[in-house]
């Protein structure tokens, strides 16, 4: 019954669906091209730094969105994976001389493994219990790293000062390599999301959201697919963390594992449109530059003006556009589709 009801309209809209997916790919190509050109137009180092962060958070939020948006598992502990990537890369590089490119992959795999173990335990928790549990596990991780002497504990890890090189992925002043890496990471996460949307997983997840009966019949498959989604999400988040370590060249527990990172990964997706393909990047493009500039140009007053602006912004956007900013565009299209 349930599957019939679901598949009939699906077949009818397949053509329109394919057309829409093709248009999305084209829009994506244009976006990539725009971001690739942007740093050649904006030479200011500070602005380029903002571009790096925007792309990084777009990628992180896109990764978060796979689990938090599409699967509906609201994780507020992704800082754990971010930190795993940053620490794995930094430790391998500074202690064993392993180049960051390799460390990045190692960090990603470790994070994915952690996500599988945690997912197995946590997916049976309902809504808020899941969210709080992820916060607590990430906090526990932060505390442990804080007290892990071999990993530098509170002192953190200072990367050695070396000349610019692609091999060690370190550049003193040049922001272009970082912009392109962040752009590549964002592209990868976007394409993975795009592929998932068109796959059986995406279909199942949508079915579960729309139809409670479907959830029953798909139970086991859903659980497995969510586990896989958690692993993918954690992997890319860790690669993002590894990238951050290469970018800043100094990490300590609070600067890569604090709760605020977990929020900053979820926030763009929420603002842009949770569980949507374009939400995270739209959210990041609006949120990150605004946050950075308010804290840079209003933070100097020392009176909390930047916090007031940031808080108001988050509140107003959450209230004014609960479906996210991308809904502004899809609503116009709605009659057509």
């Amino acid at each position: 019954m349930a599957s019939q009801a679901l598949s009939a309209p699906l077949a009818a809209t397949t053509a329109a669906h394919d057309g829409r997916r093709r248009r999305e790919l084209i829009a994506f190509a244009i976006l990539l091209a725009a971001f690739a050109v942007l740093p050649h137009l904006v030479k200011d180092v500070y602005a380029q730094n903002v571009i790096v962060l925007t792309l990084m958070y777009a990628a992180l939020s896109q990764s978060w969105n796979i689990l938090g948006g599409y699967c509906g598992q609201i994780s507020l502990g992704h800082a754990l994976y971010f930190g795993t990537g940053a620490y794995a890369t930094s430790l391998l590089y500074t202690k064993f001389g392993v180049i960051p490119w390799f460390g990045m992959i190692v960090g990603g795999v470790i994070a994915a493994a952690i996500a599988l173990v945690l997912g197995y335990q946590l997916f049976r928790l309902a809504g808020h219990y899941f969210a709080i549990a992820t916060i607590v596990i990430a906090e526990a991780g932060l505390l442990l790293v804080h007290n892990w002497d071999w990993a530098g504990a509170a002192t953190g890890i200072q990367w050695p000062f070396v000349p610019d090189s692609w091999l060690t992925f370190q550049f003193g002043r040049d922001k272009l390599p970082y912009i392109y890496f962040a752009l590549g990471l964002f592209a990868a996460t976007w394409l993975v999301t795009f592929a998932i949307e068109g796959s059986r997983w995406g279909y199942w997840w949508r079915a579960v959201k729309d139809n409670a009966d479907a959830a029953e019949s798909l139970g086991v498959k859903i659980f497995k697919s969510k586990m896989a989604a958690a692993a993918v999400s954690a992997f890319f988040t860790a690669v993002g963390g590894a990238f951050y370590a290469c970018f800043v060249q100094y990490i300590d527990p609070d600067s890569v594992m604090a709760f605020k990172f977990s929020l900053l990964m979820a926030l763009p997706a929420v603002l842009g449109g949770i569980g949507t393909l374009w939400g995270p990047v739209v959210g990041a493009v609006i949120l990150i530059p605004l946050m950075e500039t308010t804290s840079s140009y209003l933070g100097g007053t020392g009176r909390g003006i930047d916090l007031i602006v940031y808080g108001l912004l988050v509140m107003v956007v959450a209230l004014a556009r609960p479906e996210g900013i991308v809904s502004l565009f899809s609503r116009r299209k709605a009659p057509k589709a």
């Binding site: 953190g156 951050y244 970018f247 800043v248 100094y250 990490i251 300590d252 609070d254 600067s255 804290s295 840079s296 933070g299 100097g300 020392g302 930047d306």
Partner: peptide, 10 residues
């Protein structure tokens, strides 16, 4: 000229 680093190395 003052800048707020919020205790964050980045």
């Amino acid at each position: 000229i003052y800048a707020d680093h919020q205790g964050d190395p980045q």
